[in-house]
């Protein structure tokens, strides 16, 4: 039995300790906003936040979570940074196919919280692990800068 704190709710789940958080989110809790991409923490599509820090949920065993608070794309809009990022995302029309975007938004929100006025180098370092095959990187950078100024 695992106790998980997700988006403000506490869940008691009968899942193995070595099950990746992504599986629990998508298959057990049916929270499908977080996407499966590569499964080996190389693409960033599955990014969630643990106590505000970005984490790849595909390689994260639920047994290692402890008391950390998990935030997913379903609830990120309720945080101040998340709301600003989502607004800027819409304004800059970042999204193309959209598959990677929940991960992009989770990483960008965590960056904004840690570094309120990020420079290009900060954005590069924080977003480098989130891959977008549509190539929306330029608009992502633009939207992060807009959100930082809003």
């Amino acid at each position: 039995m695992q106790t998980l704190h997700i988006n403000g709710d506490t869940h008691q789940l009968d899942v193995p300790a070595d099950m990746p958080l992504l599986w629990v989110l998508r298959d057990v809790l049916k929270m499908t906003g977080t996407k499966f991409g590569c499964g080996i923490a190389q693409c960033g599509a599955c990014t969630v936040q643990l106590d505000g820090k970005p984490a790849r949920s595909c390689m994260l065993p639920v047994g290692s979570l402890g008391d950390q608070a998990v935030t997913t794309i379903e609830a990120i809009g309720a945080t101040p940074e998340g709301a600003r990022i989502q607004k800027a995302w819409l304004k800059a029309e970042v999204v193309q196919c959209g598959y990677c975007q929940s991960g992009q938004i989770m990483s960008a929100t965590a960056l904004l919280k840690a570094v309120p006025k990020p420079a290009d180098a900060d954005i590069d370092a924080a977003m480098a692990g989130n891959i977008c095959r549509c190539g929306t990187y330029i608009r992502i950078r633009e939207a992060i800068k807009q959100a930082a100024q809003s």
Binding site: A41, Q42, G44, K53, P54, A55, R56, M59, L60, S64, D124, A125, A128, G129
Partner: peptide
Amino acid sequence: AGACASCHDWTGSGAL
């Protein structure tokens, strides 16, 4: 930044 930090963390203490 692209391939390693998401698991190893910038601190090296292991992100996951």
